[in-house]
Computed example of a mutant assay.
Amino acid sequence: MAEHNEKGKRAEELAKDWLTGKGYVFREANYRYSHSEIDLIFEYKDLLVFVEVKFRSGVGFGFAEEFVDYTKRKLIIKAADHYIHENDWHKDIRFDIVGVYQDKNGNVNFRQFEDAFY
């Protein structure tokens, strides 16, 4: 597996643990539909939360939310629509972005953008 893929998977695991610690209930990881993928899916306070995780080893090239473009958002929404139908979900939903930032000393920080798009 390429190094950037390994970092991405590690960032997803870290984000999953971090959100679980905040009271989010984990449902699924890497949900795929057609050419779309949702990194993490949680339940939180009667919401179904679809989470896109982005790893950054600094902010020199921008913040995590800047790397979820229009095309990526549309793919995530397409997969979410399928998941909602497949699981017969009738409550509210939300799309979040979680940035996982690692500094040069290996320290990890998180930045969550709730209701980032739709």
Rank of each mutant, 00 (worst) to 15 (best):
R10Y: 11
R10D: 11
R10V: 05
R10M: 12
A11G: 10
A11K: 08
A11R: 08
A11S: 13
A11L: 08
A11N: 06
E12R: 03
E12N: 07
E13C: 06
E13Y: 12
E13S: 14
E13V: 11
E13G: 11
E13L: 15
L14A: 13
L14E: 14
L14Y: 13
L14I: 12
A15G: 15
A15M: 09
A15I: 09
A15W: 06
K16T: 10
K16M: 12
K16D: 07
K16G: 06
K16L: 13
K16H: 10
D17I: 12
D17N: 14
D17F: 06
D17T: 13
W18L: 09
W18D: 10
W18N: 13
L19P: 03
L19Y: 04
L19K: 05
L19H: 05
L19N: 08
L19I: 07
T20N: 13
T20L: 11
G21C: 09
G21R: 02
K22R: 13
G23Y: 08
G23P: 09
G23F: 09
G23S: 07
G23Q: 08
G23C: 09
G23I: 06
Y24S: 09
Y24P: 01
Y24A: 10
V25S: 14
V25Y: 11
V25K: 15
V25A: 12
V25F: 09
V25M: 12
F26Q: 05
F26P: 01
F26W: 12
F26N: 05
F26S: 03
F26V: 00
F26C: 02
R27D: 11
R27M: 12
R27P: 00
R27G: 00
R27Y: 08
E28D: 11
E28S: 06
E28H: 11
E28W: 02
E28P: 00
E28G: 00
E28C: 01
E28V: 05
E28Y: 09
E28L: 06
A29D: 11
A29T: 01
N30C: 00
N30Q: 13
Y31F: 15
Y31T: 01
Y31V: 04
Y31S: 04
Y31Q: 04
Y31E: 02
R32C: 06
R32E: 14
R32N: 10
R32T: 12
R32A: 09
Y33C: 05
Y33Q: 08
Y33D: 10
Y33P: 04
S34K: 15
S34G: 03
S34A: 15
S34I: 04
S34N: 14
S34E: 15
S34Y: 11
S34Q: 14
S34M: 12
S34R: 15
H35C: 03
H35T: 13
H35W: 05
H35P: 01
H35I: 11
H35N: 15
S36P: 02
S36V: 01
S36C: 15
S36F: 01
S36H: 01
S36M: 03
E37C: 07
E37M: 07
E37G: 07
E37T: 03
E37K: 08
E37R: 11
I38T: 04
I38L: 04
I38H: 01
I38A: 04
I38K: 02
I38F: 02
I38R: 05
D39T: 04
D39S: 02
D39Y: 01
L40Y: 03
L40M: 07
L40W: 03
L40F: 02
L40G: 01
I41G: 08
I41H: 09
I41P: 10
I41F: 07
I41K: 09
I41S: 09
